[in-house]
Design a protein around this nucleic acid. Sequence first.
DNA 1: ATGCTAGATTGACGAACGTCAATGAAGGCT
DNA 2: AGCCTTCATTGACGTTCGTCAATCTAGCAT
Lengths: 95, 95
Amino acid sequence: MEPAAAEELAAVFKALADPTRVSIVNRLACVDECCVCDLTAAFALSQPTVSHHLRILREAGLVATERRGTWAYYRLVSEAIERLHDVFGAAPATT
Amino acid sequence: MEPAAAEELAAVFKALADPTRVSIVNRLACVDECCVCDLTAAFALSQPTVSHHLRILREAGLVATERRGTWAYYRLVSEAIERLHDVFGAAPATT
DNA sequence: ATGCTAGATTGACGAACGTCAATGAAGGCT
DNA sequence: AGCCTTCATTGACGTTCGTCAATCTAGCAT
């Protein structure tokens, strides 16, 4: 496995290495889309903290955002999830 | 998703949130088993650092160790890998 | 017993992380 | 214009992380 591939994978796992972010991803897998205020209400965390977690998930490519009026809607990037599914299911990478 | 489940998952991802540990896991997926000295030689890191990473993977349940004489052999815990495979492939957990 | 090799552990250091209070930016309402 | 709501950003804090040098433990060989 090439070092660059290991770093990319580790970056994605780092984005998932927090209970709040795991919960956000799981919630988005259920509701398909939701805005920041819903998450702020659900997690007993300050709004900046939730925004911070969403930024990390977004920069890892796990989540995408779209502004509609005042609200920002977040949604899972299913390709990224499928890629992770493959990582743990396919034959080990030999490069 | 229950908070405890999110924390357990996050703990596993945290164990994978480092390029060296991703490479170790990938290598173990290829060679099925190897000792610490092989990894120390392969990663240009000090032996204590490699030992530290292996401890983290072991405590996360991703890796198992077995001493045979002087050597300690590490191997993947395939059940843990399969569990991760399911996480990204199954329907979203609603509990 | 002595020495050597393979690993684990400890202690220390700088860097990165999670959190919040405060502030900023932008859209919708009256 | 003025205000309110939603979200992002900044700055600061304590904590955790990755790394190494130094040390310790344990098995093997002579």
